[in-house]
């Protein structure tokens, strides 16, 4: 049991090291697909995607829909949902990293 804990801490330390090493190429990706009420019954359709790189690059695929007169416009509702998801994913990543750092603090 004690070795379980030690292994966890060692594993966490290794993960932190790997995390830092990969920092330059880290990506946060959120993809949305829209399906019908019976999941899988309809073909999943990509709606929005965001890729963030730590060197400052950010790539976003924005959901569009046909508006009045056939003009394409941003699907704001869907985009807002997507943005909220990006924020949640980013916060989660920060929380886990914070917890990992906490794992390495003995006192």
């Amino acid at each position: 049991m004690a070795s379980e804990l030690e292994n966890s801490i060692r594993s966490a330390a290794a993960k932190v090291a790997a995390y830092v090493a990969d920092a330059a190429v880290m990506e946060v990706t959120t993809s949305y697909v829209v399906v019908g009420p019976t999941a899988g019954a309809e073909t999943a359709r990509p709606a929005a995607k965001t890729i963030i790189r730590l060197d400052g690059d950010c790539e976003a695929t924005v959901p569009m829909r046909e508006g009045p007169g056939g003009i394409l416009e941003v699907d704001r509702g869907l985009f807002e949902i997507h943005q909220a998801n990006v924020a949640t994913a980013t916060e989660y990543r920060a929380r886990v990293l914070g917890a990992l750092i906490g794992l390495l603090q003995r006192r």
């Binding site: 949305y32 697909v33 990543r93 886990v96």
Partner: peptide, 13 residues
Amino acid sequence: WHGDARSLLIAGI
């Protein structure tokens, strides 16, 4: 935990 995420939502949510 990296934040890579994929969401499925009901149509017209």
